[in-house]
Design a protein around this nucleic acid. Sequence first.
DNA 1: TATCAAGTGATAATTATTCTTATATGCTAA
DNA 2: TTAGCATATAAGAATAATTATCACTTGATA
Lengths: 132, 132
Amino acid sequence: MEKSREKGLKLTPQRMVIFHILLENDRHMTADEIYQKARAEYPMLSPATVYRNMEQLVEAGLLTHLDLGGPSTRYDTNLDDHHHFVCEKCGKVTDVYLKDIRYELDPEKSDLSNVRIDSPQLYLHGVCGECG
Amino acid sequence: MEKSREKGLKLTPQRMVIFHILLENDRHMTADEIYQKARAEYPMLSPATVYRNMEQLVEAGLLTHLDLGGPSTRYDTNLDDHHHFVCEKCGKVTDVYLKDIRYELDPEKSDLSNVRIDSPQLYLHGVCGECG
DNA sequence: TATCAAGTGATAATTATTCTTATATGCTAA
DNA sequence: TTAGCATATAAGAATAATTATCACTTGATA
């Protein structure tokens, strides 16, 4: 029975709390933000558990990293093909859906002929409605 | 003489060393990488001085932050209008110059009509020639 | 010359994260 | 049914990156 090689993620109470937080909140939280909220439901939760679980969820393909400056890694629960707008003032992140994106390299300055591009990610920086 | 209100950045020896490092090296260094190289030239240099100066240079418009996941902030000395390719394997960052970039929002899902967009930044993730 | 802003090194402190260790839990094989 | 293993955990130590604090220096300015 080839069963033993599976490394399944068990659905522990801690994970259920984390899932719950992820479902109820903003899509672009840091591990610490999740930890802070989760302790309300599960006070003995340890930060290490949250950090560990977040990375496991990334590996399992349920989350992705979001790289927006700032000290802490953010996680994105939105797995759709999308992009981001970031407000420079308040830091709020908004998902941006595109119908189309196309870009043309400047061949004199950039040669990407020998690289494999997986995913173009567009980050729109600016000032949001509330701040501007 | 309206001179006293200027807050000039003095050209201290420490700053000269930092400039020197910035000119001679990769365009996407972390503050610590710069510190490590700079101490060779100026052993009593303090890390705080490097971190402090890097942020001052950003404020002065001579550098920009580069947001590429990973633990440390990177600084970009290239002020041209450009974008970045990041190798997922080795982490190397390559400047990408575009002749043109255009994107079309999906109006049903994204409304950016009340935001001001300063700069679209394209990040191309993939695998570089050496790694792929 | 007294003053002051800018700048610095040393060090403490903070933040974000990871590691370590001892322990728990539930499945699986004997 | 029970030993053993993989998965998981809390707690706290440890680490890395960065920032804050403080006392001191320096060069320009009033």
